[in-house]
Deep mutational scan, measured.
Amino acid sequence: PREAYIVTIEKGKPGQTVTWYQLRADHPKPDSLISEHPTAQEAMDAKKRYED
């Protein structure tokens, strides 16, 4: 089974940042970016789909 994890990042100019959620996995390479999402819920949904 595949495993993934969610990383929170800040995008934008200082003082005007927006939080994004990255879905990452250690396949095919360590810390590979799988997808980016504007909400934590979307990231969790993507994580479930990826791991299923």
Rank of each mutant, 00 (worst) to 15 (best):
Q41F: 07
P28G: 07
T17S: 11
P14L: 09
A4N: 02
H27E: 12
A46S: 04
D52N: 14
T19H: 06
S35E: 02
K11G: 04
T19R: 09
K13G: 13
L33A: 04
H27W: 15
P1D: 09
V7S: 05
K48Y: 08
T39F: 04
K13H: 13
Y21F: 11
I9S: 04
E3G: 15
E36C: 09
Q22A: 04
I9H: 04
H37F: 08
D52G: 14
V18Q: 12
A43N: 00
R49N: 10
D52Q: 15
E42A: 10
Y50L: 07
D45P: 00
K29S: 13
D31F: 15
K11H: 07
W20V: 08
Y21W: 15
G15W: 06
R2K: 11
Y21D: 00
Q41S: 11
A4G: 08
R24S: 02
V7T: 09
H27F: 15
H37M: 02
K13V: 14
T8V: 13
H27R: 10
G12Q: 05
Q16V: 09
P30C: 09
V18C: 08
R2G: 11
T39Q: 03
A25F: 04
G12Y: 05
E36D: 04
P14D: 13
T19L: 12
H37D: 01
A4C: 14
I34F: 02
E51C: 06
D26L: 12
K13Y: 12
D26H: 14
Y5F: 10
E42R: 05
R24P: 01
V18W: 08
A4T: 08
E42C: 06
K11L: 08
P14G: 09
P14K: 11
P38T: 12
Y50N: 02
E36P: 00
I34T: 01
K48P: 00
R2W: 14
V18T: 14
I34E: 01
G12N: 05
E10A: 08
Y50G: 02
K29T: 13
P38N: 07
Y50F: 11
E42Y: 03
P28D: 08
K48S: 09
R2T: 09
G12V: 06
E36V: 07
S35L: 01
A4W: 10
A43E: 00
Q22P: 01
I34N: 01
T17K: 12
E51Y: 08
Q16F: 14
M44Y: 13
E3H: 15
P38V: 09
S32F: 13
G15M: 05
A25V: 14
G12F: 05
P28N: 07
D45Y: 10
R49K: 13
M44Q: 12
H27T: 11
S35Q: 01
M44I: 12
E3R: 15
T8R: 13
A40N: 10
L33M: 07
L23G: 00
T17M: 13
A25P: 00
P38K: 13
I9Y: 08
K48F: 09
H27Q: 13
K47D: 00
R2Q: 07
I9F: 07
K29P: 15
G15F: 07
W20D: 01
G15R: 04
T8Y: 07
Q41K: 13
H37A: 01
H27K: 11
T8I: 14
Y21M: 01
A25K: 08
Y5D: 01
V7W: 05
G12P: 03
A4M: 08
Y21P: 00
A40F: 15
T39G: 03
D26Y: 09
Y50V: 04
D26N: 15
Q22C: 03
P30A: 10
H37N: 00
E36R: 02
L33K: 03
I9E: 03
E10K: 11
E42N: 04
S32T: 15
R49L: 11
Y21H: 03
T17V: 10
G12M: 05
G15L: 06
E51V: 08
D45K: 11
M44P: 00
S32Q: 09
S32I: 10
K47L: 13
I34D: 00
D52Y: 13
I6V: 08
L23A: 01
E51G: 06
I6A: 00
K11F: 07
H37V: 01
K29Q: 12
E3N: 15
I6S: 00
P28C: 07
D45G: 06
T17I: 10
K11V: 10
T17H: 08
L33W: 05
W20Q: 03
Q22Y: 03
Q16R: 11
E42S: 08
Q22E: 08
M44G: 06
P30H: 09
P30F: 10
E10D: 09
R49C: 08
V7L: 07
E3T: 15
E10M: 11
V7N: 04
Q41T: 09
R49T: 09
V7R: 10
M44C: 10
T17N: 06
P30Q: 09
I9D: 02
E3V: 15
P38R: 14
Y21I: 01
A25D: 03
H27N: 10
D31Q: 11
S35R: 01
D52S: 15
V18P: 01
D31N: 15
E10S: 10
E3D: 10
A25R: 11
Q16L: 10
R49D: 08
R24E: 01
D31L: 07
L23E: 00
V7K: 08
P14I: 11
E36F: 03
K11M: 07
I34R: 01
T39E: 03
Y5L: 03
H27G: 06
P38E: 11
M44A: 12
E51P: 04
V18N: 08
R2L: 11
E10P: 05
